[in-house]
Design a protein around this nucleic acid. Structure first.
Lengths: 323, 323
DNA sequence: CTGAAAGCGCTTACAG
DNA sequence: CTGAAAGCGCTTACAG
């Protein structure tokens, strides 16, 4: 493997000159830089980032830690984040699963963004988080002890959905999915704010997958007092629920209205183009990239950064009609 | 940031002893190792992997390079691969997009697996590939100049699909998607092998997304000689096509049979549980993990490793009935 | 404008 | 069983 010293010999200069030339140090004469660059190119020299990081403390790499990849949401966020970080001069590497935290801390990337994943043990997470030695923050968390974070105001998002349904005359509004407490809280508060009644039977149990949403509806026992509108926990649950509704013979939106959480492209291509609420995903990436770079630079930052979910109107909500 | 030297001082031993203790070198006395480990633990010592790699040449990290994350197939493969590599003592990091190649080569991970992504310029890819300085191979490619690789026998997979449809009496078999030449070749050869006629109108243009499949069917002009069965390019195209078929009033499988490529869980949860062909994804990960580790260890390996796609029978194929 | 030298945090023969 | 020393491939004051 070819190193800076090899290039130095081949170019007939000292290796510290090679280093500077490679880094476009302005003190190096133009012609010698060209010469060095040509030799490096010719011999397929690749800088050893590990050595660079060890010596200078910079790797220009940022880690993004996810607990899973099965939600298309993450593909979307990763893609956007990668693009934004690139604009700022960083590469992004992804680590999936719990060990991600350790990997990146050990790897000494410049900074690290965690998606606020479903933790089995939040206390343990924050304890480990506080021991991380590199700049980092949690994206999409609702609170982060003594450290910057980006919050998605999910409760407000749910409120916008409930309000929209309420404005369309719905008074019996259900929620599909019970795996995210913050969304259920938002649901409860939204009902209160819109003067509707909370009814625990209106929450259909579902974890997070397409099947969960599908079977939540399949297993639901309809009564004359059943909801006339539902909000789905996330993109997958919502699409599964939609399928089950259609299979059961309900028309969406004329019989049942449905709003999904997460505004992914998939949502508009569902059997019925889904009205959604969710954070603007492009903005999310921009804010995340800016925050991590600010932290790396040691700048003062205001936090939390709050992202407001938006309501995206499509075809899955209709006015309530008494039957 | 705490280093090996800090630990050495605190534990009252030399830092080379600390290094050995941390690496469970058997020459270190049990009691001193315990002491060192306790001190390290107490001060949240984290080994600097960059330094370890620089010094020893090993990072125990393997890179997986993808060109995109939008196909659920990749989430599945990544997850499986991560799990398999972990069993073998490695961590996996993911890099998305073209720069992935450069990032990992610069980063000097121990080894690197490329998904055979859709390249705009294959020649350029192989040129760069051949310059990579670390053990690496391409997963899912059909050929790899002078280097090990894992081939998915896609042609044979397509053949199994065509044969299955043929056995069910279908003689007019279409293919949805024209972005993967190897699959089209397989399709053509399969028709020949089963004694069916090739008809260019039976190939519906579609790139790779759900929408592509959906609109391929929507835009298709049906005639009395239209196919009675289709094979979909990948999971997304197939599901999009299925939706469009159902919307157009075709019953699947009684009017039209459909086989999808890629056996992801999503496929069985489609409106009609989809019969699929595709590589066994668990086996794919096992083989990939074993191959990269063998390459890192410098072992001789037989290549190509060939993965045979399987046919997974579900509900989307029926016998042809003349109308 | 260029180079010699120290140092980043580890590992690893080698000596004892 | 432990330690002193060299070295991995870079960067960066510092001297010239």
């Amino acid at each position: 493997m070819i190193t800076i010293k090899d290039i130095a010999k081949l170019a007939g200069v000292s290796y510290s000159t090679v280093s500077k030339a490679l880094n476009h140090d302005p003190r190096i004469k133009h012609t010698t830089r060209e010469k060095v660059l040509a030799v490096a190119e010719k011999h397929h020299y690749r800088k050893n980032i590990m050595a660079q990081q060890l010596s200078s403390g910079r790797s220009n790499i940022i880690g993004f830690v996810l607990d899973e990849l099965n939600n298309p949401l993450f593909a979307n966020i990763s893609g956007n984040l990668h693009a934004e970080l690139k604009k700022l001069g960083y590469q992004m590497i992804l680590v999936v699963a719990d060990e991600g935290m350790d990997v990146l801390d050990h790897l000494r990337v410049d900074g690290c963004i965690f998606w606020d994943y479903e933790m089995t043990d939040r206390a343990a997470f924050w304890k480990r988080f506080s021991n991380i030695q590199i700049p980092c923050f949690v994206l999409g968390t609702d609170d982060s002890p003594n450290s910057p974070y980006i919050k998605i105001d999910r409760k407000e998002g749910i409120y916008k959905a409930v309000e929209h349904l309420r404005n369309n005359g719905h008074t019996e509004i259900g929620f599909i999915g019970n795996s995210q407490p913050i969304k259920l809280e938002g649901y409860r508060e939204a009902l209160q704010r819109t003067g509707l009644e909370w009814n625990k039977d209106y929450i259909l149990p579902a974890y997070s997958s397409w099947e969960d949403g599908y079977f939540a509806i399949r297993n639901y026992e309809w009564t004359s007092k059943s909801p006339t509108a539902f909000i789905g926990l996330n993109n997958m649950v919502t699409r599964g629920a939609l399928r089950a509704l259609l299979e059961a013979g309900y028309k969406v939106p004329s019989d049942i209205s449905l709003i999904g959480y997460d505004d992914l492209p998939d949502m508009q291509y569902a059997e019925v183009a889904l009205t959604t609420i969710g954070p603007p995903l492009d903005e999310l990436a921009i804010q995340a990239a800016e925050l991590i770079v600010a932290l790396i630079r040691g700048e003062q930052v205001q936090y939390p950064v709050i992202i407001q979910p938006q309501l995206y109107h499509r075809q899955s909500v209709a006015s309530y009609k008494a039957t």
